[in-house]
Amino acid sequence: MTTLTAPTTPPGPAGTPVPYRPAGTADVLRAEWAKLRSVRSTAWTLAALVVVSVGLTGLVTWAIADELASGEAGELPAMFVTWGITFGQIAALVLGTLVITSEYASGTIRPSLAAVPRRMRLLGAKVAVLAAVMLVLGLAVSFASYAVGDFFLSREGVGVPLSDDGVLRALVGNALYLSVLAVFGLGLGLVLRHTAAAVTVGIALVFVVGQLVTLLPGTVGEWVAKLMPGNAGSAVTTVVPWDPDQLGPWTGFGVFALETALLVALGAVLLARRDA
């Protein structure tokens, strides 16, 4: 009986071994970009972000423009030119979570780690690609929301010029906030490894708990509320703050960025220690 033996060298020209080249940073970035754009959930999530953000901004400014013009609303028009992005933020959080939890759910995290044994390089590439995509899309969404909102406001004579104080900062701030918020979702996904759990915790921390902690007595409640991720980070997204007691725009964004960095660092430690 003939015994089959494995070849000692991989097939190649003239039987020469195929040289092995470990994946470099550029290779990992290209792979993460390919994974992000090839997943169906990415397209749907980003489409939801655009439609909700721009659509709701247009809807609310169309509905309230006459009241703002007459003064009946009791609010400044500048508070509404990016109003819909507040709800679009959920899509950014969900996308960031799916970037990592979908790999754990499908089991593709194992071949990813086999291809890139240096786990911090893989994580860094995921963060970089996600943040860059959300920053570019965030800028587009911010300016589109502003254009739609200002169109309806200008028809009633209460338009908000870009040159007004805080307008350009808010538009750029929305893009930055969406980018970091997506990375925040990725950090939660790293820690929890479950899409539903990470999304639920993220929505609670960003949109719910920040309001509940104001019930804490005295200055403790005030400061905890200021430092909650959603309250701190969103300060940079509005032309006029909804809450005058919150942190300043860039101070609050800095706090949120630091909180996100700490969360991702915790996720990185768990990624290094836990099995895939």
Rank of each mutant, 00 (worst) to 15 (best):
S154D: 13
R155Q: 15
G157M: 10
G157H: 14
V158L: 07
G159V: 02
V160G: 02
V160S: 02
V160R: 00
L162Q: 14
D164C: 05
D164E: 15
G166V: 03
V167R: 00
R169P: 03
V172G: 15
G173L: 06
A175L: 09
A175Q: 06
L176T: 01
Y177W: 11
L178C: 09
L178F: 14
S179N: 11
V180S: 02
L181A: 05
L181Q: 06
L181I: 04
L181T: 12
L181R: 02
A182F: 07
A182C: 10
A182S: 15
V183C: 02
F184G: 01
L186R: 10
L186Q: 09
G187C: 11
L188P: 01
G189C: 15
G189M: 08
L190G: 07
L190P: 01
L192F: 14
L192A: 05
L192R: 00
R193V: 03
R193F: 02
H194P: 03
H194R: 13
H194K: 10
T195C: 11
T195M: 07
A196L: 09
A196Y: 09
A197G: 15
A198G: 14
A198F: 13
A198Y: 14
A198M: 10
V199C: 12
T200E: 07
T200L: 11
T200C: 08
V201Y: 02
V201H: 05
V201S: 09
V201D: 07
G202E: 01
I203H: 15
I203K: 12
A204Q: 08
A204P: 05
V206H: 02
V208T: 08
V208E: 07
G210W: 00
G210A: 03
G210M: 00
Q211S: 15
L212G: 14
T214R: 14
T214F: 11
L215N: 15
L215K: 12
L215M: 14
L215T: 12
L216D: 14
P217K: 11
G218D: 14
G218L: 01
G218N: 09
G218F: 05
G218K: 03
T219N: 12
T219Y: 10
V220Q: 12
G221H: 11
G221F: 11
E222R: 06
V224H: 15
A225G: 08
K226H: 09
K226R: 15
M228K: 00
M228F: 09
P229G: 06
G230N: 05
N231W: 03
N231M: 10
A232G: 11
A232V: 08
G233N: 14
S234E: 04
V236F: 11
T237N: 09
T237V: 12
T238S: 13
V240Q: 13
V240R: 15
V240E: 13
P241E: 12
P241A: 14
W242A: 12
D245Y: 05
D245P: 01
Q246K: 13
Q246C: 07
Q246R: 15
Q246F: 13
L247S: 00
G248I: 00
G248Y: 04
G248T: 10
W250D: 04
W250S: 03
T251N: 07
G252H: 04
F253H: 02
F253D: 00
F253M: 06
F256M: 06
F256S: 00
F256A: 01
A257F: 08
L258P: 01
L258M: 08
E259R: 05
A261L: 07
L263D: 01
L263M: 06
V264N: 03
A265Y: 11
A265Q: 10
L266N: 07
L266V: 15
G267F: 02
A268P: 01
A268N: 09
A268L: 04
